[in-house]
Amino acid sequence: MGNMTELNEQALAKYRNSFLHEVEERVEEGDWVKMCMQCGVCAGSCTFGPHWEHSPQKIFMMIRAGKREEVLRSDSMWMCTSCYNCVVRCPRKLPITQIMHGLAQYAHRLGVAPKMQPTRDLSLIFWNNCIKTGRVNELRFTLSLYFKDGLMAGIRQALSMQSIALALLMAKRLNPLEFFKGHECKDKAGIHRMLKKAQEIESRRQGAHK
């Protein structure tokens, strides 16, 4: 994955004067940002709206205003729940959800994303869980999530979710045996090769000197 801070410095040097340009080149769907006409419908339609520090509308303006640090270090785009309310409403048809995830992922790669951000933690645990075998092991995934803040916090969390876990067991949606082995993809090596290739392509795009 390369050195994060190094990537960040490279980007800083290359796009010194234009964060918008940087976003256009390196963030997924970033070239749409300039199309925003600041109407505010995305901000007003967001199901999670009141809980964000910066709404998508504001983030797009901050990008254009060159507020690089504030945007990349913000936890706002990590709040996106992918409900797509904004995308269907945007009068300019910006792929807002995708841009939010693109920004979050870019900040993460640069190593500047906020620490202890629950969505980011969850995403990382999900990712690490899923790339091992090509399948998500839901039991281990849930447990890693519960115990991420230490043993006691994990036990508390697990106890509070007890009834849901039992209901899932009864409905055969949770298999306790998964803890030991779990189901896997047949061609694990193939999956790993594919992911490596995808990562190469992505690095080329996001870290390339043009």
Partner: peptide, 9 residues
């Protein structure tokens, strides 16, 4: 909604 002059909800 949210306004554009200050981003107030």
């Amino acid at each position: 909604g949210v306004d554009t002059e200050g981003y107030h909800r």
